[in-house]
């Protein structure tokens, strides 16, 4: 009998709790209904990164772009959350799905490897905007962004060819694919245009994040005669650091300006202005366009910038700078078209 009583008591307590929770839920949903109107302006952005937020390359450039967006639009208007070190697309997929479930408006998966994962997830969240890059394939709620890395590569290549003293420009590449190939091809064409007898030497480490390997490959490049070097991906800082050990050897950076770490080594940089890209995505979403566009980053719209290191301005011959600036104008006007590598 006592047992039955205890059981009854337990059941009633449970019911009371459930009822209580029920009321709470209604309250919560009521506030949730009113909340979006009050905070309708707030955009919630989730960022998924293959490497670290402070890699001084591809990932950090996007992080700083988002910070700039927050600064311009107001911290209270834009919320940004980040997950880093998700190089594996499967792990990234779990994070992306979770962000989508939590109701983030825009989810940026910052790597070409996330394309197929996004294609899969985006179908389940038709009201969420997804973006990834580099890439060009889109879906109704997926933007693909696509830096024209070959254009900046071309300008840096010209600059290198007209500045080198040894006549050899060295590229420390990661893996022969995607953006690296685009960038390297641009550099090659630029070098050939800048000065006919200057050689471009390309070598790859076979990794995206082995900074020690990149540093060693840069040392090999230099011992074989290169005096101006460049290279892409997050391992590139390792190569840049190795170049900085040597006087009279210089580095050209891409993705972002790396001169803060090696002010006496970085001559110039191709830098991506992600602020403009993300602002465009936010604006399009406000207009009801959730995706479906291939957003190219170009010099024409200012989403790619060529930055010179003021400190080393005297290392670049005046005619080199003039020629590069002219080529930039020609790229913007469409007069000059940098070829993409043939596949």
């Amino acid at each position: 009998m006592k047992k039955v009583l205890t059981l009854m008591l337990a059941v009633f307590t449970l019911l009371a709790f459930t009822a209580g929770c029920g009321t709470n839920t209604t309250d919560a949903s009521k506030t949730a209904e009113t909340a979006p109107q009050a905070k309708a302006e707030k955009v919630r952005i989730a960022l998924v990164l293959p490497a670290t937020v402070d890699d001084l390359a591809w990932c950090q450039s996007m992080v700083e772009g988002l910070k700039a967006v927050q600064k311009t639009m107001g911290e209270d208007k834009v919320e940004v959350v980040t997950s880093e070190k998700l190089g594996s697309a499967v792990d990234a997929g779990a994070a992306i799905r979770q962000y989508a479930t939590q109701g983030y408006d825009i989810i940026i998966a910052h790597g070409s490897q996330y394309q197929s994962v996004l294609m899969d997830i985006a179908k389940d969240f038709p009201k969420t905007t997804f973006a990834y890059g580099s890439g060009f394939e889109t879906a109704p709620n997926i933007f693909a962004y696509d830096p024209q890395a070959q254009d900046g590569g071309y300008l840096l290549g010209m600059l290198a060819a007209m500045t080198t003293k040894s006549g050899i420009v060295g590229i420390v590449g990661p893996v022969e694919s995607g953006d690296a190939v685009k960038f390297n091809s641009g550099v090659q064409q630029g070098v050939a245009k800048g000065k006919a007898d200057v050689k471009t030497r390309i070598a790859y480490t076979g990794s995206f994040n082995d900074i020690v390997g990149a540093g060693n490959l840069a040392k090999t490049q230099m011992s074989a005669g290169a005096d101006i070097l460049t290279g892409s991906s997050q391992q590139a800082v390792g190569a840049m650091r190795a170049v900085a050990e040597n006087k009279g050897k210089y580095w050209l950076s891409t993705d972002m300006d790396q001169s803060s770490v090696a002010p006496d080594t970085v001559l110039a940089a191709q830098a991506y202005n992600w602020e403009k890209v993300v602002t465009k995505i936010i604006d399009l979403r406000k207009q009801g366009i959730l995706g479906g566009q291939h957003l190219t980053l170009t010099f024409a719209d200012g989403t790619i910038e060529l930055k010179y290191n003021e400190k080393l301005a005297d290392k670049i011959p005046a005619e080199a700078k003039a020629a590069v600036e002219q080529a930039k104008q020609d790229i913007i006007s469409g007069k000059l078209k940098v070829e993409l590598p043939k596949k």
Binding site: T52, S207, N209, V212, G215, N216, Q234, G238, A242
Partner: peptide
């Protein structure tokens, strides 16, 4: 070698 540190430096 590297004169810097990065995540997963041992690769």
């Amino acid at each position: 070698q590297a004169n810097m540190y990065a995540d997963n430096i041992t690769a």
